[in-house]
Computed example of a mutant assay.
Amino acid sequence: MRLRLFWLAIAALYAAPVVAGLYGAGWGAVAGFALIFTGFNALMERIPPQLPLAAASIAVVALLALVTVSAGWGLRALTGFGGTLPAWPWLALGLGATALARAAFPPRLTREMDQFLDEATDQLETMAEELGALDAAAAATTLDDEAVARMEAALDALPPDAGADTVARVVLPLTDQAAPAALFEAALARAQAAPCPRDHAALHWAAVADEAIDLCTGQQHLARAFAQFTEAGDHEALYRFSGTAIRLIHDDPHAWRDMPDSGEIIRVALAVEADNPALGEELAGLGRAMMELEREADG
Protein backbone atom coordinates (compact mmCIF):
# COMPACT_ATOMS: atom_id res chain seq x y z
CA MET A 1 0.00 0.00 0.00
CA ARG A 2 2.81 2.40 0.90
CA LEU A 3 4.48 1.74 -2.41
CA ARG A 4 1.28 2.40 -4.35
CA LEU A 5 0.73 5.70 -2.53
CA PHE A 6 4.31 6.70 -3.18
CA TRP A 7 4.05 6.07 -6.92
CA LEU A 8 0.68 7.84 -7.03
CA ALA A 9 2.31 10.86 -5.39
CA ILE A 10 5.20 10.80 -7.86
CA ALA A 11 2.79 10.62 -10.79
CA ALA A 12 0.82 13.62 -9.46
CA LEU A 13 4.03 15.53 -8.78
CA TYR A 14 5.17 15.25 -12.40
CA ALA A 15 1.70 15.61 -13.93
CA ALA A 16 0.96 18.89 -12.08
CA PRO A 17 3.44 21.12 -14.00
CA VAL A 18 2.43 19.58 -17.33
CA VAL A 19 -1.26 20.32 -16.69
CA ALA A 20 -0.36 23.80 -15.41
CA GLY A 21 1.39 24.53 -18.69
CA LEU A 22 -1.56 23.10 -20.61
CA TYR A 23 -3.86 25.60 -18.82
CA GLY A 24 -1.64 28.51 -19.72
CA ALA A 25 0.42 28.96 -16.55
CA GLY A 26 3.38 31.29 -17.08
CA TRP A 27 6.96 31.52 -15.92
CA GLY A 28 5.83 31.91 -12.35
CA ALA A 29 4.71 28.27 -12.47
CA VAL A 30 8.18 27.23 -13.60
CA ALA A 31 9.71 28.96 -10.58
CA GLY A 32 7.03 27.52 -8.28
CA PHE A 33 7.54 23.94 -9.43
CA ALA A 34 11.31 24.36 -9.25
CA LEU A 35 10.84 25.21 -5.57
CA ILE A 36 8.46 22.27 -5.06
CA PHE A 37 10.89 19.80 -6.70
CA THR A 38 13.70 21.18 -4.57
CA GLY A 39 11.53 20.83 -1.46
CA PHE A 40 10.68 17.26 -2.45
CA ASN A 41 14.37 16.34 -2.71
CA ALA A 42 15.08 18.08 0.58
CA LEU A 43 12.25 16.26 2.40
CA MET A 44 13.32 12.93 0.94
CA GLU A 45 16.94 13.70 1.89
CA ARG A 46 18.12 13.47 -1.68
CA ILE A 47 20.17 16.68 -1.77
CA PRO A 48 23.87 15.90 -1.23
CA PRO A 49 25.56 17.67 1.68
CA GLN A 50 28.46 18.87 -0.50
CA LEU A 51 27.78 22.39 -1.79
CA PRO A 52 28.77 21.82 -5.46
CA LEU A 53 26.65 18.66 -5.64
CA ALA A 54 23.74 20.39 -3.90
CA ALA A 55 23.87 23.24 -6.42
CA ALA A 56 23.93 20.74 -9.26
CA SER A 57 20.94 18.93 -7.77
CA ILE A 58 18.93 22.16 -7.53
CA ALA A 59 19.88 23.07 -11.09
CA VAL A 60 18.63 19.69 -12.32
CA VAL A 61 15.23 20.01 -10.64
CA ALA A 62 14.88 23.60 -11.94
CA LEU A 63 15.51 22.27 -15.44
CA LEU A 64 12.97 19.51 -14.78
CA ALA A 65 10.39 22.13 -13.80
CA LEU A 66 11.05 24.03 -17.03
CA VAL A 67 10.81 20.86 -19.14
CA THR A 68 7.54 19.66 -17.59
CA VAL A 69 5.82 23.06 -17.79
CA SER A 70 7.13 23.46 -21.35
CA ALA A 71 5.60 20.09 -22.18
CA GLY A 72 2.24 21.51 -21.15
CA TRP A 73 2.85 24.59 -23.28
CA GLY A 74 3.65 22.35 -26.21
CA LEU A 75 0.47 20.31 -25.76
CA ARG A 76 -1.54 23.53 -25.57
CA ALA A 77 -0.09 24.74 -28.88
CA LEU A 78 -0.48 21.39 -30.62
CA THR A 79 -4.05 20.71 -29.52
CA GLY A 80 -5.30 24.27 -29.72
CA PHE A 81 -6.57 23.99 -26.17
CA GLY A 82 -7.85 27.37 -25.04
CA GLY A 83 -8.79 26.82 -21.41
CA THR A 84 -7.02 28.87 -18.77
CA LEU A 85 -6.70 28.45 -15.02
CA PRO A 86 -4.40 30.06 -12.50
CA ALA A 87 -1.26 28.16 -11.53
CA TRP A 88 -2.04 27.85 -7.85
CA PRO A 89 -4.31 24.71 -8.02
CA TRP A 90 -1.50 22.83 -9.77
CA LEU A 91 1.10 24.15 -7.39
CA ALA A 92 -1.13 22.98 -4.55
CA LEU A 93 -1.35 19.55 -6.23
CA GLY A 94 2.45 19.44 -6.38
CA LEU A 95 2.71 20.35 -2.70
CA GLY A 96 0.13 17.72 -1.77
CA ALA A 97 1.96 15.09 -3.83
CA THR A 98 5.20 15.98 -2.07
CA ALA A 99 3.55 15.63 1.34
CA LEU A 100 1.97 12.29 0.35
CA ALA A 101 5.31 10.91 -0.90
CA ARG A 102 7.00 12.00 2.32
CA ALA A 103 4.31 10.38 4.43
CA ALA A 104 4.24 7.15 2.39
CA PHE A 105 8.00 6.70 2.24
CA PRO A 106 9.83 8.84 4.80
CA PRO A 107 13.63 8.74 4.53
CA ARG A 108 13.84 6.68 7.73
CA LEU A 109 11.73 3.94 6.16
CA THR A 110 13.79 4.13 2.99
CA ARG A 111 16.98 3.71 5.01
CA GLU A 112 15.47 0.79 6.89
CA MET A 113 14.43 -0.84 3.63
CA ASP A 114 17.89 -0.29 2.19
CA GLN A 115 19.40 -1.84 5.30
CA PHE A 116 16.96 -4.74 5.09
CA LEU A 117 17.84 -5.28 1.43
CA ASP A 118 21.55 -5.14 2.23
CA GLU A 119 21.12 -7.69 5.02
CA ALA A 120 18.99 -9.91 2.80
CA THR A 121 21.62 -9.71 0.07
CA ASP A 122 24.35 -10.62 2.54
CA GLN A 123 22.30 -13.57 3.77
CA LEU A 124 21.70 -14.76 0.21
CA GLU A 125 25.41 -14.50 -0.55
CA THR A 126 26.23 -16.42 2.61
CA MET A 127 23.68 -19.10 1.72
CA ALA A 128 25.11 -19.31 -1.79
CA GLU A 129 28.61 -19.80 -0.35
CA GLU A 130 27.34 -22.47 2.04
CA LEU A 131 25.49 -24.25 -0.76
CA GLY A 132 28.62 -24.05 -2.88
CA ALA A 133 30.61 -25.61 -0.06
CA LEU A 134 27.99 -28.36 0.30
CA ASP A 135 28.08 -28.99 -3.45
CA ALA A 136 31.86 -29.19 -3.33
CA ALA A 137 31.69 -31.61 -0.42
CA ALA A 138 29.10 -33.70 -2.25
CA ALA A 139 31.19 -33.65 -5.40
CA ALA A 140 34.19 -34.83 -3.40
CA THR A 141 32.37 -38.14 -2.76
CA THR A 142 31.23 -39.36 -6.15
CA LEU A 143 29.77 -42.66 -7.29
CA ASP A 144 33.22 -43.51 -8.61
CA ASP A 145 34.73 -42.92 -5.17
CA GLU A 146 32.10 -45.11 -3.56
CA ALA A 147 32.65 -47.93 -6.07
CA VAL A 148 36.43 -47.75 -5.63
CA ALA A 149 36.01 -47.82 -1.86
CA ARG A 150 33.80 -50.92 -2.11
CA MET A 151 36.31 -52.62 -4.40
CA GLU A 152 39.24 -51.89 -2.11
CA ALA A 153 37.37 -53.01 0.99
CA ALA A 154 36.36 -56.28 -0.71
CA LEU A 155 39.89 -56.90 -1.98
CA ASP A 156 41.37 -56.19 1.44
CA ALA A 157 39.06 -58.86 2.84
CA LEU A 158 40.60 -61.45 0.48
CA PRO A 159 43.97 -63.12 1.02
CA PRO A 160 46.84 -61.77 -1.11
CA ASP A 161 46.97 -65.03 -3.11
CA ALA A 162 43.24 -65.04 -3.92
CA GLY A 163 42.46 -66.59 -7.28
CA ALA A 164 41.44 -64.65 -10.39
CA ASP A 165 37.90 -66.04 -10.41
CA THR A 166 37.34 -64.95 -6.82
CA VAL A 167 38.65 -61.48 -7.60
CA ALA A 168 36.47 -61.28 -10.71
CA ARG A 169 33.38 -61.60 -8.52
CA VAL A 170 34.54 -58.46 -6.70
CA VAL A 171 35.64 -56.27 -9.60
CA LEU A 172 33.36 -57.08 -12.53
CA PRO A 173 30.03 -56.11 -10.87
CA LEU A 174 31.50 -52.67 -10.14
CA THR A 175 32.44 -51.93 -13.76
CA ASP A 176 28.89 -50.87 -14.61
CA GLN A 177 28.55 -48.78 -11.43
CA ALA A 178 31.53 -46.48 -11.89
CA ALA A 179 33.75 -45.09 -14.61
CA PRO A 180 36.03 -47.92 -15.79
CA ALA A 181 38.97 -45.54 -15.72
CA ALA A 182 38.42 -44.88 -12.00
CA LEU A 183 38.45 -48.58 -11.16
CA PHE A 184 41.49 -49.17 -13.36
CA GLU A 185 43.53 -46.35 -11.80
CA ALA A 186 42.66 -47.58 -8.30
CA ALA A 187 43.58 -51.17 -9.17
CA LEU A 188 46.84 -50.07 -10.83
CA ALA A 189 47.80 -48.01 -7.77
CA ARG A 190 47.23 -51.01 -5.51
CA ALA A 191 49.25 -53.32 -7.76
CA GLN A 192 52.15 -50.89 -7.96
CA ALA A 193 52.18 -50.30 -4.21
CA ALA A 194 52.24 -53.98 -3.20
CA PRO A 195 52.21 -56.45 -6.11
CA CYS A 196 50.43 -59.69 -5.29
CA PRO A 197 48.25 -62.18 -7.21
CA ARG A 198 45.05 -60.70 -5.77
CA ASP A 199 45.78 -57.14 -6.87
CA HIS A 200 47.18 -58.23 -10.22
CA ALA A 201 43.97 -60.13 -10.86
CA ALA A 202 41.97 -57.00 -9.92
CA LEU A 203 44.07 -54.96 -12.36
CA HIS A 204 43.49 -57.56 -15.07
CA TRP A 205 39.70 -57.51 -14.72
CA ALA A 206 39.61 -53.72 -14.48
CA ALA A 207 41.52 -53.51 -17.77
CA VAL A 208 39.68 -56.16 -19.82
CA ALA A 209 36.07 -55.66 -18.64
CA ASP A 210 33.63 -55.01 -21.48
CA GLU A 211 32.91 -51.47 -20.22
CA ALA A 212 36.64 -50.72 -20.04
CA ILE A 213 37.23 -51.89 -23.60
CA ASP A 214 34.21 -49.95 -24.90
CA LEU A 215 34.97 -46.68 -23.11
CA CYS A 216 38.71 -46.66 -22.44
CA THR A 217 40.26 -47.91 -25.67
CA GLY A 218 43.09 -45.56 -26.55
CA GLN A 219 43.92 -44.78 -22.92
CA GLN A 220 46.56 -47.55 -22.89
CA HIS A 221 45.00 -49.44 -20.00
CA LEU A 222 45.97 -52.78 -21.50
CA ALA A 223 49.52 -51.60 -22.15
CA ARG A 224 49.90 -50.25 -18.63
CA ALA A 225 48.56 -53.46 -17.07
CA PHE A 226 50.98 -55.50 -19.22
CA ALA A 227 53.87 -53.31 -18.09
CA GLN A 228 52.94 -53.82 -14.43
CA PHE A 229 52.74 -57.63 -14.78
CA THR A 230 56.07 -57.62 -16.64
CA GLU A 231 57.83 -55.44 -14.09
CA ALA A 232 56.57 -57.59 -11.23
CA GLY A 233 57.59 -60.78 -13.05
CA ASP A 234 54.12 -62.26 -12.48
CA HIS A 235 54.02 -65.09 -15.03
CA GLU A 236 50.54 -66.21 -14.04
CA ALA A 237 49.17 -62.71 -14.61
CA LEU A 238 51.00 -62.44 -17.96
CA TYR A 239 49.66 -65.79 -19.11
CA ARG A 240 46.10 -64.84 -18.15
CA PHE A 241 46.50 -61.44 -19.79
CA SER A 242 47.88 -62.89 -23.01
CA GLY A 243 45.01 -65.35 -23.44
CA THR A 244 42.41 -62.67 -22.84
CA ALA A 245 44.14 -60.02 -24.94
CA ILE A 246 44.41 -62.16 -28.06
CA ARG A 247 40.66 -62.76 -27.94
CA LEU A 248 40.01 -59.06 -27.38
CA ILE A 249 42.06 -57.85 -30.34
CA HIS A 250 40.37 -60.34 -32.64
CA ASP A 251 36.85 -59.60 -31.40
CA ASP A 252 37.09 -55.81 -31.08
CA PRO A 253 38.37 -53.81 -34.08
CA HIS A 254 39.75 -51.07 -31.81
CA ALA A 255 40.98 -52.89 -28.71
CA TRP A 256 44.42 -53.56 -30.19
CA ARG A 257 45.14 -49.82 -30.07
CA ASP A 258 45.16 -50.09 -26.26
CA MET A 259 47.85 -52.77 -26.33
CA PRO A 260 51.63 -52.46 -26.03
CA ASP A 261 53.33 -52.60 -29.42
CA SER A 262 54.28 -55.92 -30.91
CA GLY A 263 58.01 -55.36 -30.36
CA GLU A 264 57.54 -54.99 -26.61
CA ILE A 265 55.45 -58.16 -26.43
CA ILE A 266 58.04 -60.15 -28.41
CA ARG A 267 60.81 -58.80 -26.15
CA VAL A 268 58.99 -60.03 -23.04
CA ALA A 269 58.27 -63.38 -24.75
CA LEU A 270 61.98 -63.93 -25.41
CA ALA A 271 62.88 -62.86 -21.86
CA VAL A 272 60.58 -65.41 -20.19
CA GLU A 273 60.94 -68.24 -22.71
CA ALA A 274 63.83 -69.95 -20.96
CA ASP A 275 62.07 -70.11 -17.57
CA ASN A 276 58.51 -70.55 -18.86
CA PRO A 277 58.33 -71.92 -22.41
CA ALA A 278 54.52 -72.08 -22.38
CA LEU A 279 54.26 -68.40 -21.45
CA GLY A 280 56.92 -67.49 -24.00
CA GLU A 281 54.96 -69.25 -26.73
CA GLU A 282 51.70 -67.64 -25.63
CA LEU A 283 53.23 -64.16 -25.66
CA ALA A 284 54.92 -64.81 -29.01
CA GLY A 285 51.52 -65.67 -30.48
CA LEU A 286 50.09 -62.45 -29.08
CA GLY A 287 53.04 -60.52 -30.48
CA ARG A 288 52.56 -62.01 -33.97
CA ALA A 289 48.84 -61.14 -33.89
CA MET A 290 49.72 -57.56 -32.92
CA MET A 291 52.26 -57.38 -35.76
CA GLU A 292 49.57 -58.34 -38.25
CA LEU A 293 47.18 -55.70 -36.92
CA GLU A 294 49.88 -53.04 -36.95
CA ARG A 295 50.81 -53.97 -40.51
CA GLU A 296 47.19 -53.72 -41.63
CA ALA A 297 46.84 -50.33 -39.91
CA ASP A 298 49.93 -49.05 -41.71
CA GLY A 299 48.37 -50.10 -45.00
Results as ranks from 00 to 15, higher is better:
Leu286Cys: 08
Phe241Gly: 00
Asp114Met: 13
Pro277Ala: 14
Ala92Ile: 14
Glu281Phe: 14
Phe241Arg: 11
Glu185Leu: 11
Leu93Ala: 14
Gln219Pro: 01
Gly26Pro: 00
Ala92Cys: 05
Ala55Val: 06
Arg111Glu: 10
Leu158Glu: 14
Leu203Gly: 00
Asp251Ser: 06
Trp27Asp: 08
Asn276Pro: 08
Asp135His: 10
Leu75Lys: 11
Pro253Gly: 02
Ala153His: 07
Ala138Thr: 15
Ala202Lys: 01
Asn41Ile: 07
Leu131His: 10
Val148Tyr: 01
Val18Ile: 12
Pro160Ala: 14
Gly82Arg: 06
Ala255Lys: 12
Leu66Val: 06
Val170Asp: 08
Pro48Cys: 04
Arg150His: 02
Ala12Trp: 01
Ile58Phe: 02
Leu64Lys: 11
Ala16Ser: 03
Leu222Asn: 01
Leu238Glu: 06
Ala181Ser: 04
Arg111Ser: 09
Leu172Glu: 15
Glu282Ser: 15
Gly96Asn: 09
Leu155Pro: 00
Leu203His: 07
Leu222Gln: 12
Val60Leu: 15
Asn276Phe: 11
Leu78Pro: 10
Asp118Pro: 06
Arg46Thr: 09
Glu296Phe: 09
Leu78Ala: 02
Ala16Met: 04
Thr142Tyr: 05
Gln123Arg: 15
Ala209Ile: 07
Leu215Thr: 07
Gln228Ile: 10
Ala178Tyr: 07
Asp251Met: 14
Asp118Trp: 13
Ile265His: 05
Thr110Ala: 09
Arg240Thr: 13
Ala34Cys: 06
Arg4Asn: 09
Leu75Val: 14
Ala153Glu: 10
Ala56Ile: 03
Thr142His: 04
Gly72Arg: 04
Pro17Phe: 08
Ala99Ile: 03
Ala274Ile: 07
Gly94Val: 05
Ala194His: 04
